[in-house]
């Protein structure tokens, strides 16, 4: 089970490293695009980070503001994807077991 707090912290650390922001400027609900923290390339590098750090692939149709607006939404997106993958894997195991 992945820890929400840990995911958020990793995302925050990534954002601090990738932008010129300081820690107390970025809250979990800070709107990252509205604040101009990420442009197109910034978003693309963030998607790379999510893939490399959490093994979560972003698909074309998942690239919506609801999944990337803030640390809260990115974290929820990552956790949902991981849980979905785990759930599918366990279903497969059940099928194999049967």
């Amino acid at each position: 089970m992945i820890d929400n707090k840990e995911v958020k912290e990793k995302i925050l650390q990534y954002i601090l490293g990738a932008t010129s922001s300081v820690e107390n400027e970025i809250k979990d609900d800070t709107l990252l695009f509205e604040e101009g923290l990420f442009d197109s390339m910034g978003l693309l590098f963030l998607i790379d980070f999510i893939r490399d750090e959490f093994q979560v692939e972003t698909k074309d149709d998942e690239l919506v503001v609801e999944n990337f607006a803030s640390i809260n939404s990115i974290s929820a997106f990552i956790i949902n994807k991981i849980e979905l993958t785990e759930s599918n894997d366990s279903k497969k195991l059940v099928i194999i077991h049967k």
Binding site: F33, F38, D39, L43, L44, L63, V64, V65
Partner: peptide
């Protein structure tokens, strides 16, 4: 770019 322009997210 596959996103629609009205989505409030940078283009990828």
């Amino acid at each position: 770019i596959k996103q629609t322009i009205a989505q409030n997210i940078p283009n990828v």
